[in-house]
Each structure stands twice: as structure tokens, then as C-alpha cells.
Amino acid sequence: MNRFILTIVASCALCFAGYQWHKSNQEKRIFVQDIKSRTDQYGFLDISDNLPESKRIVIVAPVNCPKAKIADYLATELNKQNIPTTRTNSYNFRQDLNNMSEREINQMIKRAEYVRKMAPPLVIVNGKIKSNPSIEAIKNEWELE
């Protein structure tokens, strides 16, 4: 009898673990699809309508980061071409959560976390963001607006 109960408990535990694994994989697939659907042909990701200075180019990299020189170079080159560019060492974005469902808020938080983990320099163009893009990609994205 004890063996039978132990077998049932073990079976239930395995079923629950399988369900949790499947649910986790499904959430990851949904997130990847969300990121892909928000990425345009130049690789820029639309994460929010309220990125800082969405009508100009913002290049973000910490001052003491090894990639800061790349960020400085990008800013200098774009400014030489009369493309309005701001170089900064931090960014933030705001979103009005009042009209959003819990699912939409969770997706937005996941996108923000995804962006936070991107390698610098981050370049924001027309309210979209990309990690370490080329000058050509930046110019192409800029011309879309």
C-alpha cells in the first residue's frame, strides 16, 4: 500500500514538473516572438513609445565602460553628418500603466529587462533601440522617420 501511494505521489510530482517546464518554455517562446515582432529590418527594437528624446538619436554607454569609445565615435561621426545625436551614460523610459493589462505590464517589464542586458553602446533612434549598431544601420533607421 505504501509503495502504491509513493508511486502516485511520484507520478503527480513528475506531471507537475513537466507542466511547469512546458509552461516556462511556452512563455519563453512567446517572449521571443514578441521581441521578433517588435524588431524592424535594421535590427532596432521598439520597446516603448516613451523612450527619451524619441525624435533624435541617443547613444548610451557608461563613461568608464570599454565600449564608451565606440559610443563617442558614433556620436562624433553622426554629428559630423548633421544628424542630431546626444551621447549619454544612462537612460530611462516611462510608460503609462493605467490602461494596460497585467499581461501587457509583464511583457513590458520583460522587454525592459531584455534591453538592460544588451551590450553597450545602446543606440536609440526614433523611439527604437539597438545594441552596438553600425553607422549605416543608424542612418537607415533615422531615415525611416
Rank of each mutant, 00 (worst) to 15 (best):
R3Q: 14
F4K: 14
I5W: 10
I5E: 15
I8Q: 13
I8C: 09
V9S: 13
A10K: 11
L14Q: 06
L14I: 14
A17G: 12
G18T: 10
Y19C: 06
H22G: 12
Q26D: 14
K28P: 03
R29E: 11
R29A: 13
R29Y: 08
R29Q: 15
F31P: 07
V32S: 08
V32K: 15
D34S: 09
I35W: 00
K36R: 09
S37N: 15
D40E: 04
Q41E: 10
Q41R: 10
Y42K: 04
G43E: 06
G43F: 06
D46Y: 12
S48Q: 03
D49T: 05
D49R: 07
D49P: 06
N50G: 00
P52E: 06
P52T: 00
E53S: 13
E53M: 12
S54E: 03
K55G: 11
R56Q: 13
I57M: 07
I57E: 08
I57W: 07
I59Y: 05
V60H: 03
V60D: 00
P62A: 13
N64V: 09
P66T: 05
K67R: 15
K67A: 15
I70V: 14
A71C: 10
Y73K: 15
L74W: 13
T76S: 11
K80R: 01
Q81P: 02
I83T: 05
T85S: 15
T88V: 12
S90N: 07
F93C: 01
F93Q: 01
F93D: 01
R94L: 00
Q95K: 04
N99S: 06
E102F: 10
R103S: 08
R103W: 03
I105R: 14
N106E: 13
N106P: 00
N106V: 05
Q107M: 08
K110L: 11
A112C: 11
E113H: 14
R116V: 02
K117F: 10
K117V: 13
K117I: 09
M118V: 02
M118P: 04
A119N: 15
P120R: 01
L122E: 02
L122I: 07
V125G: 03
V125P: 01
N126Q: 05
G127L: 00
K128R: 14
K128H: 09
I129T: 05
K130T: 03
S131E: 11
I138C: 04
K139A: 08
K139F: 05
K139D: 07
E141A: 08
W142F: 12
E143W: 06
E143L: 10
L144C: 04
